[in-house]
């Protein structure tokens, strides 16, 4: 299955626009295949595999060199672990932002992206504009983006935000407590969660969010749920009351 990924990803990297989008859909479908089936390489279904082989044949233009380079290129990976712990962090206005229980209201967001970064991290700085564009072109009622600055003083993050304004909250994990609780070992790291705040995808490096499409992702989630239903694998339970809320803060 690694051969499949090595062949497809270069095409994603170099074949832009529609072809790339089609391939991305396949990748997302792969990524949200039912959890608990091992790595993202092994979790793909045989049906997708067949489709993928056809796509690879169609993109034989991808050179070995491009393949080698593109193995490095970012790809979202299915999350096979459990749910992530709740947290409460200040944003730059010292407003408390909560992730997870205690829930005050049911989240209306269908997709939540939790993105760990640092202002000193060059790939992070390069990635954030694409995340901003994703937020801009997506209905804010469907997508919630939370970015978390890891281990930095407020003043430094505030200066960064002044220079590069974002359209989503920047939370302050000053002592890395949340990053540790989420087992974040590198920056940037991003989790894509469903409406129940269950992680579905993750990536431990920068990602081109211009490739990500929320409706496609949701569609693939639906496919995954159907696939779940057709198997006897038990679906992980999660707290349906978890939500993202904002409370308190400056007057």
């Amino acid at each position: 299955m690694k051969g499949f990924c090595a062949a497809v990803v270069p095409c994603q990297k170099h074949a832009l626009t529609q072809s790339a989008r089609q391939l991305q859909i396949v990748t997302v479908a792969q990524a949200v295949a039912p959890a608990g089936r091992g790595s993202h390489f092994s979790s793909i279904t045989s049906a997708i595999f067949g489709f993928s082989l056809a796509l690879c044949a169609g993109f034989a233009c991808c050179s070995l060199a491009a393949k080698a380079a593109a193995i490095e290129s970012a790809k979202l990976t299915v999350w096979t672990g459990g749910s992530k712990p709740a947290f409460v962090l200040d944003d730059l206005d010292k407003t408390k932002v909560s992730f997870g229980p205690p829930a005050l209201e049911t989240s209306s967001h269908e997709v939540v992206i939790v993105h760990f970064f640092a202002t000193w991290c060059e790939p992070c700085r390069e990635e954030l504009p694409a995340l901003r564009r994703l937020a801009e072109r997506t209905d804010s009622r469907r997508l919630r983006v939370l970015t978390i600055s890891v281990g930095e003083v407020d003043a430094r993050v505030r200066n960064f935000a002044d220079k590069f304004p974002m359209n989503f909250p920047i939370l302050l994990d000053r002592d890395r407590t949340v990053a540790r609780a989420w087992n974040v070992s590198g920056l940037p790291t991003t989790f894509v969660l469903d409406r129940d705040l269950r992680p579905r995808l993750f990536i431990e490096r920068d990602y081109d969010w211009d490739q990500f499409d929320v409706p496609d992702f949701l569609k693939s989630l639906g496919s995954a749920k159907q696939s779940d239903a057709q198997t006897t694998r038990s679906v992980p339970t999660f707290d349906t009351t978890t939500t993202i809320t904002t409370t308190g803060g400056k007057p």
Binding site: A118, P123, S185, L187, E204
Partner: peptide, 9 residues
Amino acid sequence: DIAAMLTSD
């Protein structure tokens, strides 16, 4: 942050 450096390549 060397783990971050290595992880992000």
